[in-house]
């Protein structure tokens, strides 16, 4: 069974010690994350969805969300391994009506 990740309690091995409670920008809004927070935690916090470590919704279905960090796409497979640091700029995007 895939362990469910809760916000602020990342099971990811925190080998890199960073400053506590990083202040990041998510979609140009300042957000303070918990120490050692990964992209999974940031997405969970932004969308309000409970996510598995693999970045899929714990309740099944598709999330329909993608993330760019400093202008580069972070594939979902790397969300759990990507820790966020002070000053990181994230874009969290989804599909909206258009076209």
């Amino acid at each position: 069974m895939i362990p469910v990740l809760t916000i602020g309690n990342s099971p990811v091995d925190q080998t890199v010690v960073r400053g506590p409670m990083p202040n990041v920008q998510i979609n140009s809004e300042p957000v303070t994350l918990d120490e050692g927070a990964t992209v999974v935690a940031a997405v969970a916090q932004t969308t309000g969805r409970e996510l598995t470590e693999s970045g899929t919704p714990a309740d099944g279905g598709r999330l329909g969300v993608a993330v760019a960090l400093a202008g580069e796409v972070v594939p979902r497979s790397r969300w759990a391994a990507t820790e966020l640091a002070e000053g990181d700029e994230l874009e969290i995007v989804t599909a909206v009506q258009g076209g």
């Binding site: 979609n27 309000g48 279905g61 598709r62 329909g64 599909a95 909206v96 009506q97 258009g98 076209g99």
Partner: peptide, 17 residues
């Protein structure tokens, strides 16, 4: 077609789902 935009709380009942 859909457009890609920043996630916002109102997006919840999304066109994608």
């Amino acid at each position: 077609t859909v457009a890609m935009r920043r996630y916002s709380p109102e997006t919840k009942t999304s066109v994608f789902s």
